[in-house]
Design a protein around this nucleic acid. Structure first.
Length: 304
DNA sequence: CGTTGATCCTGGGCGC
DNA sequence: TGCGCCCAGGATCAAC
């Protein structure tokens, strides 16, 4: 599940290689991953254009071309990797991607849906087993990109000046849902997904089923800091490779070794030893420590 | 307008 | 060994 730290890791891996390269050809082998804006030959309209920028907004990766924006969303199992067709790897390294298996290069397989070929023999491959990912093509006008972000209801962008406490507190207005659901809503803070939502709530010591409208100001401030902390840590360790995530070089991240609650059901809390509990909230697996993240606060609280 | 739940898609894990 | 079943989940959209 590529979330903000995973997409940012991919972005950082691609940017130095792709700036200035010319798109020679773009081929889609499965129209399912094409948004309407990228169908009917609109992908091939990008041929001949240079890549001028590689940016990110939430979980969206944005290639700024001379006349268009090419936008990727990796969904759950999307992978965007760079392949050098001139490089001759040993046979043992030339293999298709199978889950988390390490490989030196990705040979295209039946899950590779988009091939982008550059003039210098390199390729950018989009592979997505479950096809929840999408590709979009926009006209190159800042207004169109901003409209795209608005259309997809993207909220506060972490690591920018817009992610500040005042705006964060304001984003709680008229929110009555549970904290887990709020964090998964991209209109709240853009880029947080299931893994980092659980980690942020643990970091803040907040129970995932608590209602957003019932938080004290101090608790909101803790969540504000916690989201920043867990996303920053995720980037530091190159993303979380719990299932299918690989960076632009086809390598795993190591943040899965830094997780406190996600995927640790039944294992002892790393802070207090209490077994981590897994439940379902908003149809999503949700992990938390029942002692570090009490459901009810108040005078009778048993912790601490 | 906010919130909930169904839906898409495939591989992997499990029970028998 | 193989079959069927169920789970994982980001974003969208219908319905309340």
């Amino acid at each position: 599940m590529p979330e903000l730290p995973e997409v940012e890791t991919i972005r950082r891996g691609l940017e130095p290689h792709l700036i200035g390269l010319t798109l020679q050809s773009l081929t889609a082998t499965d129209p399912k991953v094409l948004d309407l804006s990228a169908r009917d030959g609109k992908l091939s309209a990008l041929e001949g254009q240079k890549i001028e920028s590689v940016t990110r907004r939430g979980k969206y990766l944005v290639f700024g071309l001379e006349q268009h924006y090419l936008v990727f969303h990796l969904g759950m199992t999307g992978q965007l990797t760079l392949r050098d067709t001139h490089r001759q790897d040993a046979d043992s390294f030339e293999r298709t991607v199978t889950g988390l298996e390490w490989c030196e290069q990705h040979a295209p397989d039946r899950h590779t849906h988009i091939h982008i070929v550059f003039g210098d023999g390199r390729q950018l491959l989009f592979r997505d087993i479950r096809k929840f990912g999408r590709v979009y093509v926009l006209e190159r006008e800042l207004g169109h990109l901003l409209a795209f972000y608005k259309l997809h209801h993207l909220g506060l962008e972490p690591f920018t000046s817009e992610y500040n406490l005042k705006a964060f507190l304001a984003a709680f207005k008229n929110r009555t849902l549970r904290l887990k659901s709020l964090l998964l809503n991209q209109a709240f803070v853009a880029g947080v997904g299931n893994i980092y939502a659980d980690e942020a709530l643990f970091e803040a010591g907040l129970h995932p089923a608590r209602k957003a409208s019932r938080l004290k100001k101090a608790e909101k401030e803790r969540l504000f800091e916690a989201i920043h902390t867990v996303l920053e840590r995720g980037i530091k360790f190159g993303g979380t490779s719990f299932r299918d995530y690989l960076n632009s070089e086809g390598e795993k991240g190591t943040n899965q070794e830094e997780l406190y609650v996600y995927g640790r059901e039944g294992e002892p809390c790393l802070k207090c030893g209490t077994p981590i509990v897994k439940t379902v909230i908003s149809q999503r697996g949700t992990h938390f420590c029942p002692k570090c993240q009490p459901r009810h606060t108040g005078s009778a609280r048993a912790n601490k």
